[in-house]
Amino acid sequence: MTSTPGSAGPTAATTPPPPDPAERVRRFSGAERWVHRSTATLMLLCVASAACLYLPQLAELVGRRHTVVTVHQWSGVLTPVPFLAGLLSRALRADLSRLNRFGPHDRQWLRAVWRRDHRPEARPAGKFNAGQKLYAAWIAGAVLVMTGTGALMWFTGLAPLMWRTSATFVHDWLALAIGIVLAGHMAMALADPEARRGMRTGSVERHWARSQHALWGEDRAGSRSLED
């Protein structure tokens, strides 16, 4: 079968070239993405079921309070499980080590955020920037507190009434704080499509990595480069 001269021209001009795998950098392993998705699903179930329990409008709309309570309790208890299972992954353990290191460049990043300086050179970051490190530390602590206070509220025989009353107070207000912080986290993710793509596919564009996480290579063990 033959084609007339110039027939391929318009099609070739409008069809974008396929992405070059060499222009992408591996960021997250499959295990890390599974941990993130599973934890996110459980936390969203916790937040949604809590909203149905505490907001009268949603409670009337959903009904089945006993079912909602059961979903809330078990999604809360299971929230730490994906992370604990993910500790079997060497990649996850390596990233936890990065998240736990806070250096001079992280303080510089926070100062730039405070001054609203958006220049990439003013916000040096390794694989994770200072904001991501603070968020990870805060949400990890919040999950532990919520699990502990939730257990006291669920199993009423574990502690005296005063303890359960205090646990309820802490649980309710911390739940509100978590909802606000999660909303901010999702807003930041929506504002950065490439960061979302990295969590979804495991890789990011090279130029994004170099502009947003210029010290990433230095964060890696030994002399391995950004391409590893």
Rank of each mutant, 00 (worst) to 15 (best):
R90I: 04
P5S: 14
C52N: 08
P18R: 11
H105F: 00
R119N: 02
W34R: 12
R116C: 00
Q108A: 12
H72D: 04
A8K: 12
S29F: 02
L53M: 14
R107M: 12
A8C: 07
L45M: 11
R64S: 14
R26W: 09
V25T: 03
F28Y: 15
H36A: 11
V25A: 00
A59N: 15
P56W: 10
T67D: 09
G103V: 14
G103Y: 12
T15H: 07
C46M: 13
W114E: 02
H66I: 10
M43W: 09
S3V: 15
S7V: 09
S75Q: 01
S49L: 05
L55D: 06
L99H: 04
L96D: 04
S49A: 07
P16Y: 03
R119H: 08
R101Y: 06
V77N: 03
R64A: 15
R111A: 06
P80I: 03
P80F: 06
A91K: 14
A112N: 00
R65S: 10
P120S: 01
R115S: 05
R98Q: 08
G63R: 11
R64Q: 13
A40V: 06
P80M: 04
L58E: 03
A85W: 13
R90A: 14
Q73F: 15
L44D: 01
Q57Y: 08
S49G: 03
E60Y: 08
L53S: 02
R119D: 05
H105D: 00
T11F: 14
V71S: 02
V69F: 11
A12H: 08
H66K: 10
L87M: 07
P21F: 08
P17K: 11
R116T: 00
L87V: 13
P19L: 06
R111K: 08
Y54K: 06
W114A: 12
R93W: 01
P16E: 02
P5Q: 13
L88D: 06
P17S: 13
A13Y: 10
G76I: 04
T67L: 15
R107S: 12
R65T: 15
W34L: 14
T70S: 10
G63P: 15
E121R: 00
P10Q: 04
P120C: 00
R93A: 02
N100D: 11
L44Y: 04
